[in-house]
């Protein structure tokens, strides 16, 4: 016997969480774009999507975010921090790859100092993940040692029942357990079989890839030029990635007052590494694409012991020229056969 959340009680569930002070965010499709937004009713949720086009990362590390307000006076400077308010949020219907993405980024934001802007949101969020029963041609979680029902980064795991009537519920953390409190009367006991999870083929050999990337000779390989020749240098893959986390700091205002903001930046852009001298150490698209792959499957692992990729496949799915991590890592796998 396990606990079941019946699908027809989802509205009661949302209401219970809202009464307990949570905002409930779920996948929605609005203005021709699927993303996570606050919902009040289950009918607004788009739970049948393989994956939202935007990631939940957006709600923890927004594309633009004010850091401080400043004003410069004759003899001093006033600054006022703009740390986000503590807001309890439930993310319902997250996919395992997006949930994993948050867990992958946690050590980065807590490494040399604790990034309050990230952790104020992380600490007040409960991630309710639904295991995948469908996938598409671009999903690749199984290639990066994750799976359609990985629990990494999740506080509650929901596994769809075979008969489609609801989900089997498993709390994975204290936060997850606490979230089930307000809905304890909605959950019921049951032994219904769960639907089989999506079958996502292994598309590349990540161990071989990591070994090849770690070889110093690979850095100057002609491979990078060949694989990236059609890259147009946009930031689509980085900005849709659940783990990419690079940013730029910009001051907006006039001479005396303004707001310092943290804005997404991308290693695909030439400006990303442009020095004030005019010298650019990554002055070609191939060096920039190499950086992206090296960072994800070599440097990040070296520092934090995990690859910076959760296998969502958005980089390929939404690439204007049909590139992406999968093709590159398949090619590296084939190089080392």
């Amino acid at each position: 016997m396990t606990r079941i959340l019946p699908k027809n009680r989802l509205d009661d569930c949302i209401a219970a969480w809202r009464s307990a002070g949570f905002s409930v965010l779920a996948p929605v499709r609005r203005s021709d774009l699927s993303r996570f937004e606050e919902v009040e009713r289950s009918e607004d949720m788009a739970l049948d999507l393989v994956l939202t086009e935007r990631t939940i990362k957006d709600h923890f590390f927004p594309q633009t975010e004010p850091l401080i307000k400043y004003s410069i006076k004759k003899h001093d400077i006033d600054t006022q921090e703009m740390v986000p308010p503590e807001r309890k949020r439930v993310f319902f219907g997250v996919r395992p790859c997006d949930a994993s993405g948050l867990a992958i980024d946690d050590p980065l934001f807590g490494w040399d100092y604790r990034d309050e802007y990230w952790f104020k949101r992380r600490d007040n969020a409960v991630i309710v993940t639904i295991a995948c029963t469908t996938s598409d041609d671009f999903c690749m979680c199984s290639s990066v040692n994750l799976s359609p029902d990985s629990t990494k980064g999740s506080d509650v795991m929901l596994r769809p029942l075979q008969n489609g009537s609801g989900w089997q519920v498993e709390a994975l953390s204290d936060r997850g357990n606490a979230l089930l409190g307000p809905i304890s009367s909605i959950l019921k006991e049951g032994s219904d079989a769960t639907a089989s999870t999506a079958s996502v083929p292994v598309r590349f050999d990540v161990d071989k890839v990591m070994a090849w990337l770690a070889d110093p000779a690979s850095f100057e390989s002609h491979f990078w030029k060949e694989i990236s020749v059609r890259c147009i240098g946009c930031g689509s893959c980085t900005f849709l990635c659940p783990t990419c986390h690079c940013f730029d700091i910009q001051d907006e205002g006039d001479t005396y007052t303004g707001i310092r903001r943290k804005n997404w930046d991308s290693c695909s852009f030439p400006m990303f590494t442009m020095h004030t001298s005019g010298h650019n150490p990554r002055n070609t698209q191939s060096t920039r694409w190499r950086q992206r792959i090296m960072h994800k499957f070599n440097y990040y692992r070296g520092k934090f012991g995990v690859n910076s990729c959760s296998g969502c496949g958005r980089c390929t799915r939404q690439c204007p020229v049909d590139m992406g991590i999968t093709e590159t890592l398949q090619a590296i796998t084939n190089l080392t056969k």
């Binding site: 203005s31 774009l33 594309q63 147009i232 240098g233 946009c234 930031g235 689509s236 980085t238 900005f239 849709l240 997404w264 991308s266 852009f269 030439p270 400006m271 204007p320 020229v321």
Partner: peptide, 27 residues
């Protein structure tokens, strides 16, 4: 509403044959 979705990835610029400026005004 439509522009609120924009993430400034500049895919529209990069794919366009007319956007050939080596340094775009936004850069």
């Amino acid at each position: 509403d439509q522009f609120s979705k924009c993430i400034k990835c500049y895919a529209c610029r990069q794919v366009c044959p007319m956007c050939y400026c080596r340094r775009c005004i936004v850069d």
